[in-house]
Design a protein around this nucleic acid. Sequence first.
DNA 1: TTTTGAGTTGTTCGA
DNA 2: GTCGAACAACTCAAA
Length: 465
Amino acid sequence: MGDSIGIMWFRRDLRLADNPALRAALAAHDHVIALFVHDPAFVGPAGANRVAYLHATLDALDADLDAKLVERSGAPEAIVAELAAEVEAPTVYVTDDFGPKGRARDLAVERGLLAAGRTLARIGSPYAVAPGTVSTQGGTPFRVFTPFSRAWRDHGWDDPAPAPPTAPVLAGVAGAGRPPTPPPEASSGLPPVGEAAAHRAADDFLARHVEGYKQDRNRPDLDVTSRLSPHLKYGTIHPRQLLGRLSDASGPSTFASELAWRDFYADVLFHWPQTVRQNFADKMDGLQWDVGALADQRFEAWCAGETGYPIVDAGMRQLLAEGWMHNRVRMIAASFLVKDLHIDWRRGAAWFMRHLYDGDLASNTHGWQWTAGTGTDAAPFFRVFNPTTQGLRFDPDGAYVRRYVPEVGHLAGPAAHEPWKAAADLFGAAVDYPNPIVDHAAERDEALARYQQRETNLPQGSGTR
DNA sequence: TTTTGAGTTGTTCGA
DNA sequence: GTCGAACAACTCAAA
């Protein structure tokens, strides 16, 4: 061991427990420096909510590290190499990153380190089963979830490791600070941050809600989901730490399946990084999306929660107010944008990514592609969500829509989902709430027609991937 | 190589 | 009001 110094470069693994890269660094060196680099290339697209959340999470990590977290700002290729030279560290430890930009960044950092005789050690991943690990018998990546999930389960994962017994020995080094923290756009402020909060959320969910998860997870009016998505995004908890606590019962295994979905979409994006922008199914490239002034106007109504469909508007307003939206409502709102308003899924995906605290490129992109019918799911194209039916089914008492759309607050029970049926002059009610901006039945037919016609719009020579 | 079973989350229509 | 069938055709993954 000698007097060597190692650098633990934190990215999306902001925890001490069950962090293999950190463990390896501590095992190999007398002193370990904890580093976080604020990279403008990553901060730009994140949106104020996630930047504020990240900074608060870093505060929590810094506290757990006895205020020894070193934060610097700039291009990682320069920052990491400079620090390694400054403290003469032979090795920089990271949890591997599988995103398109993260991979490119790490290759550039690694080249710089290697040129100076140092190494970048990639140890562990943010997933139970790292992208690129499982494949079909033919050696190709999975394009369908169910066979992926079987291989994923069969592959399995390590048991989680405990936190280092004492706070790691850290050599303090001057940090050049961090960029200004923007105020979060969400009026409700930040959700709980940090490793301890992640475990409290997990404990609470596993104790109270996981048994009924299979049924109740679809109910936006009940606060019974795990709320772990931002913690998983920033690595304050690892899926390994959850999977070991899930039984084979229906609720827990349904939750495990959601974690498998997270790994699946990361695997898909790893193998097809261009699908951040391009349709996964290029046979859908001929699909026509609306553009122009009317489309822009409708998109803005959707963003603001002013479509006249209460369940859609409730979700979009929840997104603005809380930086989070219930998953069932994410699907309803997304379906409305692409199938009722015929607006490109990329616009909706970008809006979600701007506002969500848990905004994850792989899950968000491929969740949207699934809804748009351009993604990994070969399932029926005719699956068009009816916003009213979905609202009545999953928010049966109307409590969720009344919470976020006060204009329908005077409508008791399920009637809140169909304000257009209420007498217009009743209490002068619904005066400020718009009538539906489009007719769902008509737009459903229009969406189905466009899916049928897409082939005639394909450029010559276009085929399946 | 060919065949076979299956594919997250749905809606509508008609009996 | 309930319930089952229909809604395209295609591709994936494994046998």
